[in-house]
Design a protein around this nucleic acid. Structure first.
Lengths: 228, 228
DNA sequence: ACCTGAACACCGTTCAAGT
DNA sequence: ACCTGAACACCGTTCAAGT
């Protein structure tokens, strides 16, 4: 795992390192090594550069983490929320699925959304577009704002809990594998003390599934739009 | 901040340190110093003991973190969900509020719920009791299981995003203070590019409020119980 | 402006040794 | 069984120095 200090991965004439390349390297490292393996020194090593060099491009580790979070959020392509040809509800559900899929491709980066306020430009864009969709659904300005947050909380909360059960390295075990592992965990629960848990263990094992994810969002959307 | 190594906080005859006292000290440290200030060495120092002593009581840092998470979850007093005298919906809303309040009292510990699977005894208890309440609401076993997870995701997601905007030290600034700080952040958004954000900035500043928390849960519950 | 080398004050974890 | 002391392989960050 640890490369000898005298042979960093890339050595040669000072290439013009850019801030973007730094963020890319940080995300790549996060994907490969997970949250536990992420450090400024390892990022520097990956770029063939002394760790303190990174301070030319970024104020500190926290600032780099914010940049990575912003980059991952941008990768979800929120422009998909602007396709007004598709009905608002499909638009929201489709984008939510994209957001989940993107974060699952970068499980080590997912928790960065919890490390700093989500106040970047992409978060702003997502909020505005969600409010567009919800206004189209008939909500007034206040309810649209509140509803958009409820949706983001449901999406991000689900992904964060899902990712918490992994080591944060890409690629994650397949969904069926992760469900099976959870199911094995439920085999030992005392059915006398926890009858509902024992009876619903298959459903509960699938709490981290895409099916549960969509089901929850559907129910939330049912509650958000006026009960017709 | 750093106490001299030769004068740890408590010195004397070897007191019988217990695992419970260790978890207490860890949680106290987390409250005082936040996530950033949490380390095994600092916990040891607080207990007047060498850091490696902790390994007598706990396998490693991750195990200690799981114990702290379990302890905080237990502090929410899930027995409140067993008061069948109050209607199921009030029971759920009241417990959700307690869970949020407890995590906000331990903001540094909140993120520990995202660090490891929530498969402890208290999580099991909460799930079972939520399913009790949802069965009372008329949901079948499968829907009750799914609905209980949707509720936990909404509650924990909201708290995690709320806590992400703080330094994780207890006590947090008051809710009005935190809302005001968020509001100031929205003052700089371009109303031309983001008209809905600009118009709803007061509501969006209050996304982290208890009012939004309850509103979201109410809407979710509306969607979870059959539209009568 | 960008990078290096060395240093500072930390980490988690291990191991042999003491009581 | 419990704790110490020393060590190992790491951290983030700073600073003076080189180009």
């Amino acid at each position: 795992m640890s490369t000898s200090a005298s042979t960093p991965r890339r050595r040669g004439p000072r290439r013009s390192l850019t801030r973007e390349a730094l963020v890319d390297a940080a995300l790549d490292l996060l994907d490969e090594a997970g949250w536990a393996g992420f450090s400024l020194r390892a990022v520097g090593n990956r770029l063939g550069v002394d760790p303190n060099t990174l301070y030319t491009y970024v104020a500190d580790r926290a600032a780099l983490e914010r940049e990575v979070a912003e980059r991952v959020l941008a990768e979800t392509d929120p422009a998909a929320l602007e396709d007004v040809a598709t009905p608002w509800r499909d638009r929201v559900l489709r984008y939510a699925g994209r957001l989940r899929a993107t974060l699952l491709r970068h499980p080590g980066a997912a928790r960065l959304l919890t490390t700093a306020p989500m106040d970047g430009p992409t978060a702003l864009l997502i909020g505005e577009r969600l409010m567009d969709a919800l206004a189209e659904a008939g909500l007034d300005a206040d309810d649209a704002a509140r509803a958009s947050y409820a949706l983001m909380v449901q999406v991000l909360g689900a992904v964060l809990l899902e990712v918490a059960e992994t080591d944060g390295r890409h690629p994650l075990p397949s969904e069926p594998e992760r469900i099976a592992a959870r199911r094995a965990g439920f085999d030992t629960v005392d059915a006398g003390a926890w009858p509902r848990t024992a009876a619903a263990s298959a459903t509960m094992a699938a709490w981290i599934s895409g099916e549960q994810f969509t089901w929850s969002l559907d129910r939330l959307l049912d509650g958000l739009v006026p009960c017709s």
